[in-house]
Design a protein around this nucleic acid. Structure first.
Lengths: 199, 199
DNA sequence: CCAAAACGATAACAAAAGATAAGAAGGAGT
DNA sequence: ACTCCTTCTTATCTTTTGTTATCGTTTTGG
């Protein structure tokens, strides 16, 4: 019995159960394909221009997903413990990933091939439903993110971050990454902080 | 036989077939619940604060989806012929819609209750798969939209619109709606146009 | 057919953000 | 303990965008 792997697998199953309750048989479709990967700080688990084929589940560590353009980086998401992580657009479309995903700390992930998940979608009703619910979940998150970028000023976005579910993010991630996450420069964010805090 | 309704239903089926090939039986699960709705210009089919329950399919007309905040409007999407249309986030989450959807012209839609679709999801594998693929489709579109807002300057966003799949949009929609779609003011967009066109 | 409203361009000014550079503070690794 | 690198702040200058208002033009509705 591979104990740490099994332990991790249980955590993943628990996470997936928040979307759908899988039968043991359905779960057995995935479990044999799981493995554990250790990553060092600054290591990439997805690279721009490369078709992504792996899905991960963060056991420990912090990650950022970001675009680059003309040497500039814009962070689109942060990933923490107990979260599924993947260049999901690339998996779905089977096209080269537009984004990179980088570990911001030493990290441990459970990983499995997207191809396995895709096969499970067509094989088991439970997995197919998970696929829908998971996509819907991401969709809602993206909609809210887009609405924030479209509706709020940089200052309002920073305030929203301070007061939102993601508050913990500020303690665990360098500020210049957060700045690009908010669609502004680190310098500008520093000014905003200055404008806000005194009040 | 209700001919115009049946004709419209065929169009919808054809559209859905682009995601999955439904069996006749699966299709029959939806068809009886379809009806046709005529809308006048400026009429709303979804309203901020109200839980959305209907899904539509545009047979004719143009729609915009927009947020309001402090009396200001920001357009998040435009809908045209042969597209599914709904305050989908609200349907999925069963929470009050954050957005309005308004007809920009007189319009005709095929409509059905989301509850029917939801029931079909759990009843038929084909519909469940459609649910996943449709959510993934929207997800990819939202990701690209978010990336545009995060990575591109207003001018680049306008250029991207000029050269993108949505080019036709410019002919069919008033410019001040497009401006808020790009996350800028109409005045600013007018300046951008001036800066661009001479070249 | 006419009056009112909507639309788009433009100008002038204010506010905000970007670019760049310099410097302080803290950590990591040797 | 020391150096180097990263992170963050601050200052200056420039550019862009927002705001407000005005003015033709077009569209709409009565």
């Amino acid at each position: 019995m591979n104990d740490p792997l099994h332990q991790a697998a249980l955590q993943l199953r628990q996470h997936i159960d928040q979307f759908v309750a899988l039968s043991d048989e359905e779960w057995q479709g995935l479990e044999p394909h799981l493995s554990i990967v250790h990553l060092k700080k600054n290591q990439f688990i997805a690279t721009q221009g490369v078709v992504a084929g792996q899905v991960g589940f963060v056991l420990e560590g912090v990650f950022r997903q970001f675009y680059t353009k003309d040497g500039e980086e814009r962070t689109t998401y942060f990933f923490f413990d107990q979260q599924l992580i993947a260049a999901y657009m690339s998996c779905i479309t089977a096209r080269p990933s537009p984004v990179n995903i980088e570990a911001l700390s030493d990290a441990t992930c459970l990983v499995f091939p997207y191809a396995v998940l895709k096969a499970l979608f067509s094989q088991y009703a439970g997995w197919q439903e998970f696929g829908r619910l998971f996509a819907e979940y991401i969709m809602v998150a993206l909609e809210e993110r887009m609405a924030g970028l479209l509706m709020l000023s940089p200052e309002e976005r920073y305030l929203a971050l301070l007061e939102g579910d993601q508050r913990h993010l500020l303690q665990r991630v360098p500020q210049h990454y957060i700045a690009t996450y908010l669609g502004i420069t680190p310098v500008s964010m520093s000014r905003i902080r200055n404008r806000i805090i005194p009040k």
